[in-house]
Design a protein around this nucleic acid. Structure first.
Lengths: 166, 166
DNA sequence: AAAGATTGTTGTTGACGACAACAATTGTCG
DNA sequence: CGACAATTGTTGTCGTCAACAACAATCTTT
């Protein structure tokens, strides 16, 4: 993830020819003040997590934001776009494009609300329901990757610490 | 559980005729499967942290990435752009623009390396040193905000859990 | 009915990551 | 030594994403 040259397995040194005298420059750069900054650690962790999610759900071509939208709609059918955007902390302008894509793939349908003719009631299609079930299985697999990475109880503790942000 | 007849009432202060307590719609949308997903919690937390960082360092107009670049250069003068990019997980193409900006603001200077005439040795200017000291004080203030948000020992534990990603 | 607010939509801007191509330079190896 | 491959900084493009602004259609309020 951080380097492009090393992620093919565990290639120990890229320049294998010239012996141990040359060290990989970036590996021993001191971070100093950067260590101890929560934001930096969280950013790096989030990048890792998203990449694993994207890779694990790569076959079904579902990205984290799309997954969150589908999950919320599946759990709360009939929500308006505004409500979904508010709940997930995304702009309603952005949700438009997300729904365009999900609707094109027949996962979601926008139903014109009778109560408020400005808004759309969002629902999963039948196809969307079965698809979401599969996505959830893959997402669970991704969560197991997280457990494998940081430890089961660490993940649980982390979720507890960050529960206030969901 | 959601009665779809209520989603018109997104405004907290107005009261429809039906329920006793009309709550803000987005506040009681069930997340269900989204709760328990580490990625979602981490994403929301990271957004919060970055926004606080940007706000706290707003007066000096330093964003998280810029701060990380300055910190690494300050701690390791003479590094090449490649080494900095590698250490921070940034593309060297991106670092070019970051350094352009930081050099324009007289925080950083690119010195042509004698050892390898392709590369630049990165140093802080005198002005950059004093500025970075101020940035670090502000960053420490930001960290106190994080402590206030999630608790001192929770922050410490979180840093320990994510230490592997720095 | 008029004024103001909300919803979905379109568009713009800027930060950011991933890639590709290039010149200059360095390292490798026949 | 000299051709060839690799690295460094740079420029450029493309796609994602957040933050705004503006707009028409539609409520809500007064």
């Amino acid at each position: 993830m951080r380097t492009t040259s090393r992620e093919t397995g565990a290639s120990p040194r890229k320049r294998a020819g010239n012996g141990a005298a040359v060290r990989d420059v970036a590996d021993d750069v001191g971070l100093d003040a950067l260590v101890g900054h929560a934001g930096y650690a969280v950013r790096r962790f989030q990048i890792w997590i998203f990449q694993d999610f994207i890779r694990t759900l790569g076959d079904v071509e579902i990205r984290p934001t799309q997954y969150s939208v589908l999950t919320v709609i599946g759990a709360n059918p009939g929500l308006s776009q505004m409500a979904v955007a508010k709940r997930l902390g995304i702009e309603r302008a952005r949700l438009v494009h997300l729904l365009d894509s999900l609707e094109q793939r027949k996962y979601v349908k926008r139903v014109k609300s009778k109560a408020d003719r400005r808004s759309h009631a969002l629902h999963l299609t039948a196809h969307g329901e079965t698809a979401l079930a599969k996505f959830k299985r893959l997402a669970a697999e991704h969560e197991r990757h997280v457990e494998a990475k940081i430890g089961k109880e660490n993940r649980a503790h982390l979720l507890r610490i960050l529960a206030g942000f969901t």
